[in-house]
């Protein structure tokens, strides 16, 4: 069950710069910590975040162990056409979590 919060304005004017916010629940385990039994806690972080606008990738970010748990990413897009904005988060174990939101441009 993906636990993600994405915030995309429902309506925007053509050419308007809109702020997009995306947050996902993830432990972002660095791999540098030692568990209670003395063995390393294996690294498990989100490696890549990507956002596509009507299928075209418009924003992406590579994440590293220094990023906190539940990474929160905010960025801006130029609203061009109505459509869907898709978000994907890919982590170390290859699990891909997704979320999407609609935007209406007029």
């Amino acid at each position: 069950m993906a636990r993600a919060l994405v915030n995309v304005p429902k309506m925007a004017r053509q050419g308007e710069v809109v702020e997009i916010k995306a947050m996902i629940a993830h432990p972002m385990e660095t791999g540098y910590r030692i568990g209670p039994n003395g063995s390393n806690i294996p690294r498990d972080i989100i490696r890549r975040f990507a956002c596509s606008y009507n299928g075209e990738e418009v924003f992406s970010a590579d994440l590293f162990p220094a990023v906190s748990a539940n990474p929160f990413i905010a960025f801006t897009l130029v609203a061009t056409t109505s459509g869907t904005i898709d978000f994907t988060w890919t982590d170390d174990v290859g699990k891909i979590q997704t979320a999407s939101a609609m935007i209406t441009v007029n």
Partner: peptide, 16 residues
Amino acid sequence: DDMSNPGMLWVLQGEQ
């Protein structure tokens, strides 16, 4: 801000 409050992720899971 509910959009940046990480606690809302748990509220969301609770709703499910």
